[in-house]
Design a protein around this nucleic acid. Structure first.
Lengths: 198, 198
DNA sequence: GAATATCTGGAACGAACGTTCCTCAATTGA
DNA sequence: TCAATTGAGGAACGTTCGTTCCAGATATTC
């Protein structure tokens, strides 16, 4: 069942993890292909043969991020008996995840490509689409809460979801600026004051 | 009183304005010196003679931004009979300014250099310091409100100020992603729910 | 008008960019 | 054992990067 030809001398997932960390830390534009290759422990030719080009690698790294480090928002929406619990947990977990010392601070989706040259605009748009996934999950959870009677039906769920997402994105900037975990937990608690009265 | 030698053929302020718009739109890393020069309507030699290098020009553009387009946060803190009025106004004005169609969306300080290569880290730190100015102004205004009895002294003014700044920074990301002015106004209203009860 | 001073556009610099190519190494199937 | 196949490292591609240099143009001062 082994593949024909010379086998890969590196693990694709491990290399992708390293690429993700580089893009996450320095952003898309500031991370060079040579930097990536040396960080990943492979040559540029192997990089191109395995992942395509820089843009493809970036998108693959983004997928890797969303499927691993970025899952905490999804998890928060799924765990918790009430929507209130879910979002309270969302903010606490976000504050913790965004300030971890064993990885770049802040969210890769929020920080890696906020601005770019016109040629890279299509790539930036793809990031925007990916950010939308979180928003939709927030809306769905809030709508479910309305349906179950936890939240009054007068609540503007889309605006509330957007507010929560906006706050978390702001927390990414703050985490990168150097705000402490404790400060961000306080910020999260204040955001929860927007929760509709029962 | 005229200067010796050949006079400048361009207005320095106008050129700086154009440089600011370019950096604001595309970010520091993605904006090239040749792009800048042609946008400013001058040659690279004039650019270097007048502004120094790319980093110096960026900092000058940042100063220009803060003294002009970025003044709305300062104005909001100074105008308003109560702190509540000030911050309500801050969010409304922010939502409007961040989504103007005659200039790049979002705040230049929040978007132009969130991530960078290690060599540019000192420059990024300078941006962090500049962001701190807004935070200090928010804190001062809230403290004044406590002193004047508008807000109860049990209020954690630094956390509340950080929360407001965080929300506005998140609004910058949202504005760049494409969120409408109306949506951001709603987000601002929800942020104001964190205002301490009287 | 001559001397001095400053600003101009354009050419040129070495370095780094993303990408491709080529040769050699390592493995499988016959 | 040997052709076929795939991955390896590294040199090299043309382009763009930020920056410097230079000859010429335009002003003031004497």
């Amino acid at each position: 069942m082994a593949a024909r030809g010379r086998p890969k001398s590196f693990d694709k997932e491990t290399a992708l993890e390293q690429a993700m960390l580089a893009f996450w830390d320095r952003g898309f534009e500031a991370t060079g292909v040579d930097d990536l290759a040396s960080t990943m422990g492979i040559s540029t030719s192997s990089l191109y043969a395995t992942f395509g080009g820089k843009e493809d690698l970036f998108l693959a790294a983004l997928d890797h991020y969303q499927g691993d480090r970025g899952r905490y928002t999804k998890s928060a929406m799924e765990n918790g008996s009430t929507a209130l619990d879910c979002f309270r947990n969302l903010f606490e977990v976000s504050a913790i995840e965004l300030t971890r010392t064993d990885q770049p601070r802040g969210c890769m989706l929020a920080l890696a490509l906020p601005t770019c040259s016109p040629e890279m605009e299509p790539l930036r748009m793809k990031m925007n689409e990916r950010r939308g996934v979180s928003l939709r999950r927030f809306v769905e959870r809030l709508r479910r809460a309305v349906k179950e009677g936890e939240i009054d039906s007068s609540c503007d769920t889309t605006s509330l979801a957007l507010f929560f997402l906006t706050t978390i994105q702001g927390m990414s900037i703050q985490a990168r600026t150097g705000a402490s975990r404790e400060k961000l937990i306080e910020v999260g608690k204040l955001a929860m004051r927007a929760w509709p009265e029962t």
